[in-house]
Design a protein around this nucleic acid. Sequence first.
DNA 1: GCAAACTAGTTGCGTTTGCAACGAATAACC
DNA 2: GGTTATTCGTTGCAAACGCAACTAGTTTGC
Lengths: 156, 156
Amino acid sequence: MPGTKPHDLLIFLTNRVGRQLSRLMLEQMEFEGFLPQSTHMGLVADLVGNDGLRQQDLAISTIKDKGTVARALKQLESAGLLMRQIDADDRRQKLIRLTDKGNRLWQFAQSKATETMVTATHDIEQTEFDTCIDVLKRVYQNLHQQLSIPQTSSHE
Amino acid sequence: MPGTKPHDLLIFLTNRVGRQLSRLMLEQMEFEGFLPQSTHMGLVADLVGNDGLRQQDLAISTIKDKGTVARALKQLESAGLLMRQIDADDRRQKLIRLTDKGNRLWQFAQSKATETMVTATHDIEQTEFDTCIDVLKRVYQNLHQQLSIPQTSSHE
DNA sequence: GCAAACTAGTTGCGTTTGCAACGAATAACC
DNA sequence: GGTTATTCGTTGCAAACGCAACTAGTTTGC
């Protein structure tokens, strides 16, 4: 990627590394008859240890359209990986909770991820890697607020 | 994203930050009547200062299917942003070169990217950011070899 | 020189995705 | 209390993507 200024690299590097990791990991990810996709795993990652999230929350954190989230959750539910329960306090929203099988999928994914990550980071020191993760987390947080706002409905 | 081990974060962080940056930047990217998409900009980024790449090369570096690349390049060509010229030495392959308009698109994109990147990195020190870029570059390189190999045709 | 194997790019097809329109439930306003 | 505005989730639709089959051009082996 020559000809780019440093700050331009981030958008291409994140997109490409993300796709690389997704492709390499997902091809090993068949779990009890279910073939998860990138979208599925992103949702599961947020749901681990976080019972009771709403679909809207997941759409915002994963930066996916709420329709996309709805469909992916439906598939995960059909596969028995999570449950969607209508909130009694506000019957519009559904509260989402991983099942035991969903949690096992997450454990399985973590074990499978190790090998790929060893290859990916074999020449990278731990402190450098940690800095990278930390920077990405902060970028994510900084942009998160930008992206959440657009609910300023255009009413004409 | 709680409940994750450090090395698991990379796949989700890269995918999410990549999508965040793509969405924020692309919505400002209309250029002389052309509305570029993430795939278009990824290709242009590789073509800047690199005349004569083949479609196959671009498919590998951007980690996209060659059909996807073919279609995106066709659109960029129609918009007058690049030219595809059949290689006289090997008439199967097409050599790709940005036009002046294509180079102007890149300049335009860089100018538009600045504001978003300032927001994204306002609380991040330059050295940290550089380390992050460097780590991502190395991860990209390490995985690149993994992904390029699959041409070991299964012949049975 | 010719047939088989291979490679670069294109195209058809099914899946995934984002956008927009919709229905149901709640909140806000008078 | 009833009307209007918002919000959450679903669904229709069109665009984009990956896979696989295909065409055309090149290389290999005899």
